[in-house]
């Protein structure tokens, strides 16, 4: 059984302008010891997917359909009492800006100890030792000194390490990282990513890594989900997505970023403007910007086509190619 099983998740925000279907039928599963990457442009529903799993949505947001099973236990509709034990015990989340989750008026030590005593049955003294141990684990130098410092006294990279230590304080099964390095310089980002990878090896937890940076997922992730306008267009292993992309959006995304040895080759941007969730097309959400769009793409959503064991894509082009292959195969016989 998968550790986390998300099926046909739908989350909406109810606004004055109407219902915003931020997550619109997302399914995936996550096994222990795996790193799952979620990529996609701004507003595609990456964070809302994560916040739905944690059930920490804004007041106007609600899960309107689907199922989220953690170790077989249904979380949708399970109620706040269950979710309290899930959050901070089984699943932890770290955000892009550590200052939003660290309290500026308390010392690092105070906050770590509070998190530890809340989630484990250690007493104050044991919690102090554990806090120092966690700071060491995330490579914060002079941990005893840091315990007495306030968040503003630390650099951005160090604060993010403290956040990770905090998230690990409950020994979670799943760590969700929502753009944890986006605000950091590359050299510091590289250190944090390496840290996450090594912690994952040591502690055996699963990680969901949310980012818009394809370089970050390439480095860290076993499996990748590509989101567009609240849906998953393609999912597969890192190799599937980078070396054998099938969905037109994934292909477009990969052609629009500079790579190491492209030299004077021009980037091929995705044309048009990002999706407006209040004005969704009837068919494939990407159809209005897709160079390959056919008549059917505009009118009808496409089911997932299985490319190989772990590789799925929801693109009419794949259906077309498959039918052509079958036809070709048939006429050859």
């Amino acid at each position: 059984m998968a550790l986390l099983e998300v099926k046909d998740l739908k989350t909406s925000f109810f606004t004055a302008a109407g219902e915003v279907k931020a997550v619109n039928g997302v399914s995936f599963s996550l096994d222990r010891h795996k790193v799952l990457g979620i990529v996609g442009e701004s507003g595609s529903g990456k964070s809302v997917t994560a916040y739905s799993i944690m059930q920490i949505l804004d007041a106007n947001g609600r899960i309107v359909g689907g199922s989220i099973k953690l170790d077989g236990q249904e979380l949708v509709g399970a109620g706040e009492k269950v979710m309290k034990t899930v959050r901070g015990n089984k699943i932890s989340i770290i955000f892009q800006d550590p200052m939003t989750s660290l309290n500026p008026t308390y010392t690092i030590g105070h906050q770590l100890i509070e998190a530890i005593t809340l989630h484990t049955d250690r007493d104050k003294k044991q919690a102090w030792d554990r806090a120092v141990e966690l700071l060491k684990l995330v490579n914060v130098n002079e941990p005893e000194k840091r315990m007495k410092q306030y968040p503003f006294e630390l650099s951005g990279g160090m604060r993010q390490r403290v956040m990770i230590a905090m998230a690990l304080s409950c020994e979670p099964d799943i760590l969700i990282a929502d753009e944890p390095t986006t605000a950091l310089d590359v050299t510091i980002q590289a250190g944090i990513l390496e840290l996450m990878k090594s912690l994952q090896d040591q502690l055996g937890m699963a990680i969901i890594m949310i980012t818009h940076d394809l370089g970050v997922v390439a480095q860290l992730c076993d499996e990748i989900i590509v989101m567009y306008a609240g849906s998953i267009c393609e999912r597969g292993t890192a190799e599937d997505i980078f070396y054998d992309p099938h969905h037109s959006y994934t292909k477009g995304l990969l052609k629009s970023i500079p790579t190491v040895d492209m030299d004077d080759k021009k980037l091929e941007p995705i044309t048009g403007t990002p999706i407006d969730l209040l004005n969704m097309p009837k068919g494939c959400p990407f159809a209005p910007r897709c160079d390959d769009a056919m008549h059917i793409c505009i009118n009808q959503t496409c089911d997932y086509v299985q490319i190989n064991e772990h590789h799925y894509s929801a693109c009419w082009m794949n259906v077309k190619e498959m039918m052509e292959e079958q036809k070709g195969g048939a006429s050859n016989e």
Binding site: A218, T259, V260
Partner: peptide, 12 residues
């Protein structure tokens, strides 16, 4: 050496 290269084989 810290640049995250969007290519799993190179990056790893």
């Amino acid at each position: 050496s810290a640049v995250p290269v969007p290519d799993p084989k190179i990056a790893r």
